[in-house]
Write a protein that binds this DNA or RNA. Structure first.
Lengths: 219, 219
DNA sequence: TAGATTGTTAATCGATTAACAATC
DNA sequence: TAGATTGTTAATCGATTAACAATC
């Protein structure tokens, strides 16, 4: 049965999807929540609840038909309708994202890139055009683009953000290491490398310190 | 006063740090939790609690000395001791990360990159060496490298992960869009682009649908 | 002093986990 | 049928928020 999907569940769905796709290379088969959970090292009940939120194809003792489950997850992730996006900042990271052809599989279609800098204009390896930024608003409005990707340096990110909002963008994917402000109705998802690194560092510090201090008492 | 820091708090610390650094361009000044909260659109109490977990420099009515608070956060993030890392997969994304010189500011130092593919060997724009992957284990052991960054395609990510573990790596930052398995004591942090995209798509679907269906009742 | 802001203790909220009934 | 696996309802857990006392 279908209920409203929590943010946590939503963020786990792509992980399930990924696993299921790898698994079912053109073999029709069944899969249980427990099997998924064990492979992904998640809780069995959590997986079961997540799956129940997106699919009603589960059969006791049998599990889900992998193929059908994939479809149900894709529907819930909105992968059936592709969203157009523009990317701003054709530096190294920007170009890397432009060239990555896996985004279409996630429902994202980057239609064009923009940059202020003259020498990157033209087109990318990927064949995608890199345009001068003053053409952005016009293009976004004409093509009704709703997603903007920011890959400029931190100090110009807010300016770019404002321009995207001005161009009618509703959701922003920010790779610049800075906080962005935008109107309430605009969703900003920052890819926070520093937060990820904090997690890694902390793990090391805990591990290395605990080895170093094996003779010490804990406080 | 200092307590153990929750994962959530830990992940917000870099955001505060970033804001504080932008703010205090060589001006000594005070700042309150409320001011930070308002600027970053977070809850005032949440910020206050986070700050209390890392610093004891807060003074009623005055707030924190920005400079001192920055130092306290940096200490808690382990930015004082730089961690060495190796990167595997010198494709577009790998090269982009290699060239980004901001990681040192987050406590990460990429010492070398590895790749199977012959034609990328040599060195990057960044001046960092790109070596054949069979030299990885030796280098990691000699330099006691503890962090590995995976930027290879999904289908070889698990193999690379195994090699990193074999090389004595303790924490893995994974950019390949796939799930990785490793022993319990190894931390794997996957940069999950698909999860982020799911969030963006969902926001658009909700927004666009609500506009489309303005005449409909909600269920 | 008065009042702004801190730090802490208690209440709320939401997500995860556990327990169990339903069913193929 | 028996039993594995689902889906749901209740209990637990942790994080956020609220309330308030402490203090510069």
């Amino acid at each position: 049965m279908k209920r409203s999907i929590s943010i946590q569940t939503l963020q786990r769905l792509p992980i399930y999807l990924n696993f299921l796709k790898e698994l079912s290379q053109n073999k029709r088969m069944n899969i249980s929540a427990k099997c998924i959970a064990d492979n992904l090292r998640l809780g069995e009940i959590q997986v079961r609840k997540d799956l129940a939120a997106v699919s009603s194809g589960g059969k006791p003792k049998v599990g889900y038909v992998t193929e059908d489950l994939i479809k149900d997850i894709e529907i819930n992730l909105g992968h059936n309708n592709l969203h157009d996006a523009v990317l701003v900042g054709a530096g190294k990271l920007g170009k890397a994202l432009l060239s990555y052809d896996g985004f279409k599989g996630y429902g994202l279609n980057i239609v064009a890139a923009f940059d202020v800098c003259g020498d990157v204009l033209g087109s990318n390896d990927s064949g995608k055009q890199i345009l001068a930024i003053d053409k952005m608003k016009d293009l976004c409005e004409r093509m009704k683009v709703r997603i903007g990707i920011i890959t400029v340096p931190a100090d110009s990110a807010q300016k770019v953000c404002d321009m995207l909002v001005e161009s009618g963008i509703l959701a922003i994917w920010n790779f610049a290491p800075t906080h962005l402000s935008a109107p309430e109705n605009i969703l900003i998802k920052s890819e926070n490398m520093a937060s990820s690194l904090a997690l890694l560092s902390m793990h090391l510090i805990k591990n290395i310190d605990s080895k170093k201090g094996e003779m010490d008492n804990e406080e």
